[in-house]
Write a protein that binds this DNA or RNA. Structure first.
Lengths: 359, 359
DNA sequence: ATGAAAGCGCTAACAT
DNA sequence: ATGTTAGCGCTTTCAT
């Protein structure tokens, strides 16, 4: 369905420039520039005259000219993985909001996983466009392709190889969150916790796995074998079937909520009740997590706060390259306990055909 | 957690410009420009010499200068509602991909619902940045604030009030999809279908409601009262409780999957089984839809295809303002039948106070 | 507190 | 097929 609504003919009346405003206001062009850049030393009435003239003419600053003359674009490039996943999408929204609050515009470039050019290609295209800083939103390990960049870089999570004036790392501590999730299950009395990991090329997936491992290690437990998904519910379902068929599995920590949901489905189909037989914890607290069946226990990170903190740091690095970076905010982490977790089922005597290890 | 990785001191060596490349290649500056713009009339070996010189110097075109001189930014602005909803996020990804394929960069500005400036403010800030075209990703009704814009505008769904050189509308026919969803329930034997609508300020929510209404009207059925959510699972749950308490409700079409999931939760909590007692259809086919309990019947739109089609139209309007717009692609629509829909329960005499077990 | 002049690095229009 | 000359609309630097 496509419709053309209207097309006002060649209304190519040239847009007003700052000289036009200057002429109308009876000042020099430079004064107009001063007003629009909030520079000091402009008397109040001159400022008002200029503003009025601009208003009357419908003047707007030409950003290309501004960028050319000043060498700064007042924009920040974001390299994002082209997914509609809740986490990345939320972070992107947060970044945009934070950027706008600091007066920067956002240029987004997606890299598809498996993209030959990868993040390097995306960064390149941002540099081509001209940006004052770059954000790597979901860093993944693409091998030793170290990249030279002339602007500050913000990486959420872990620092890939960049040679840049400044590299800032920000984000919530995924390790800690994963550890909390795992400890919750342990505290309920489960003797061990299995893990459905995210794709290990993602640094964040690795962090979550490490947090899980650390929680087990802290109680002297060996980590069971990890199964790996791709963040999707579909993958959670697929790899979840292995776990569902293993009666020793009573608690699973999934690296995100989507995989947790897929896992629950696999468990239910295998006739194992959640949480009666198996407890499941997710990660992210996606909006549906509270409403799926059963409502999902999960950990939540505040994407907006993360984005804001990171962006402020980046802008600081852009605008005051000499200053040391301020410390990062300490961001709260929430474990949200719902109905998908419970104490393990009571020990049953070894039934026929059922292996019951001591442990 | 924040860490500063490195800061190479004032390595402010000036970036090479096209004259530098020209000098090194032994040609004029204009020839360099020709090469980088793929203009005709450049001999193969001169082109190669220029490319080599550029490579050697690490030259990249200065976009600000280019934009200033040409009056075009080769970028497209997107006005997006700042949500991490699956639909909008998917569309945004599709837009970025499509734009990049046509050589345009993307500038995103979010409007939060209830933003005083609204879409008008967002468009304004895009115009400030300088864009060659604008995309209104999820148009909502903000009243009669007609806006004057100097560049072509693409609106997905329905056309808000814009005075622009060209206004293009694109998108899948939501009415048709809603109608299919409703007819599926009717075909199963339900005597009527209830509807959880999206926020009526969204044109798309209105379209879905109209499609539902049309399907009922086509069979001579009166539409039951509509309940309205805000797209979220939480709202689906809240308004779904009303529906759950009404034993005449046997079939519900929710305007998106999230609300459908919230509704299912409300139904289950009220002791009504899905699909045995009540059938539910969603809209979007979000990735978890196939894995929730029960797997959700829904309709799917191909966001990538929608985005690509719309963007090609927009680029056409930008680059060939004289030409008439080509016709839009005819995009496929899928009804995906899963386990949340079934024939209505057999008529029973009103059994009151009967508690049903959870599904 | 305000103004004049000189670019920023490119593309456009016109040579040749 | 290649080069020359003007700007594009600002910010900068330096005067005043």
């Amino acid at each position: 369905m496509t419709r053309q609504i209207g097309r006002s003919g060649g209304s190519a009346l040239p847009l007003p420039r700052s000289v036009d405003v200057a002429r109308l206001a009876g000042v020099s062009q430079k004064t107009v520039s001063r007003v629009f850049n909030d520079e000091p030393y402009v008397s109040a009435d001159v400022r008002q005259r200029v503003l009025d003239a601009a208003e009357q003419l419908g003047y707007r600053l030409n950003n290309a000219a501004r960028a050319l003359a000043s060498g700064r674009t007042r924009s920040i490039g974001v390299v994002s993985l082209g997914t509609a996943l809740y986490g990345p999408a939320s972070l992107l929204m947060g970044i945009e909001r934070a950027a706008r609050n600091t007066g920067y515009a956002i240029r987004v470039v997606n890299t598809v996983e498996g993209d030959p050019a990868g993040a390097a290609g995306a960064v390149d295209s941002l540099l081509d466009q001209g940006v004052d800083g770059i954000v790597i939103s979901e860093p993944i390990d693409e091998g030793p392709a170290s990249l030279r960049v002339d602007v500050p870089v913000l990486v959420f999570g872990a620092p890939p190889a960049f040679v840049a004036p400044t590299v800032v790392t920000a984000g919530i501590d995924s390790r800690l969150m994963a550890r909390m999730a795992t400890e919750h299950l342990l505290d309920l009395g489960h003797t061990t916790v299995h893990h459905i990991a995210g794709p290990q090329r993602w640094y964040d997936a690795r962090d979550r796995m490490e947090g899980w491992r650390a929680a087990l290690a802290a109680r002297g437990l060996d980590a069971p074998p990890v199964v790996e998904g791709d963040w999707s519910a579909a993958s959670g379902y697929t790899v979840g079937r292995e776990l569902a068929s293993d009666n020793n599995v009573t608690a699973v920590f999934a690296a995100n909520d989507d995989m947790a949901i897929g896992l629950v489905r696999a468990l239910v189909e295998a006739g194992r009740r959640v949480p009666d037989d198996v407890s499941v914890v997710g990660f992210d607290d996606i909006p549906v997590a509270a409403y799926v069946n059963p409502p999902l226990t999960t950990v939540r990170q505040l994407f907006d706060a993360v984005a804001e903190d990171g962006l402020n740091l980046l802008v600081h690095a852009i605008e005051k390259p000499q200053d040391p970076l301020p410390p990062a905010a300490d961001l709260p982490v929430d474990l949200i306990i719902r109905a998908s977790t419970a104490p393990p089922p009571p020990r049953t005597t070894p039934a026929r055909g059922r292996r019951q290890p001591l442990a």
